[in-house]
């Protein structure tokens, strides 16, 4: 029961994007299409899970004063792995995400879960926590990316729903990210209130 809670809280109750408002930089920056949002979300989920496991395992070895630099080293290792794998196997996604992949290192969620959860819990709980948080983040980014892609260019996962000429270009640009995210959060807060 408790382990299930560690996993499931990342989706709704403590969703990084919709509830905690963490990791806003990739959330607003890369969600111009659903596929970008999903790719970014899964990359972050992988880094989050792996770094949570490693940090939970070595937490007793890390001196308290240098724990943040140590966490960063662990996280950066996995980000480098993701970056190289993506460059090798998904070059087009790598192109469109660009700088945001290396920026996962300083993503608030990854560091936040390391500090708040992995450094205090065992490896299994930390893995479930990282997986739940990461997939919740991926879900949020995919939803936001789907909305923006649909409204902005009339497509969902590159499938045309209506002609691109009728799309509202602003949703593909930065201001549209803020508008779409604002309404999504308002909608989810409203759901929570009534639930």
């Amino acid at each position: 029961m408790n382990q299930w809670n560690n996993f499931s809280k990342g989706f709704f109750k403590e969703n990084a994007v919709f509830t905690l408002l963490l990791g806003m930089c990739p959330t607003l920056g890369v969600t111009s299409s659903a596929i970008n949002g999903l790719g970014m979300g899964l990359a972050t989920a992988f880094v989050l899970t792996m770094s949570n496991i490693v940090i939970a395992l070595i937490k007793d070895l890390i001196p308290d004063k240098v724990r943040i630099p140590s966490f960063i080293v662990v996280i950066a290792t996995f980000v480098t792995i993701v970056e190289m794998l993506m460059q090798a196997y998904l070059p087009s996604l790598f192109e469109s995400l660009g700088l945001f992949i290396p920026l996962i290192v300083v993503n608030c969620i990854v560091l936040g879960r390391a500090e708040a959860f992995a450094s205090k819990n065992n490896a299994i709980s930390s893995m479930l926590d990282g997986l739940g948080m990461g997939l919740g983040f991926a879900m949020a980014l995919t939803i936001l990316g789907t909305f923006r892609e649909f409204l902005g260019s009339g497509k969902i996962f590159n499938m045309t729903i209506f002609p691109e000429d009728y799309g509202m270009l602003v949703f593909v640009l930065a201001p549209g990210a803020f508008i779409a995210l604002g309404y999504l959060i308002a909608f989810i807060n409203n759901m929570k209130k009534t639930a």
């Binding site: 799309g167 509202m168 270009l169 602003v170 949703f171 640009l173 201001p175």
Partner: peptide, 8 residues
Amino acid sequence: VFLLISFP
């Protein structure tokens, strides 16, 4: 402004 950016 929304229209100007969306439908230039």
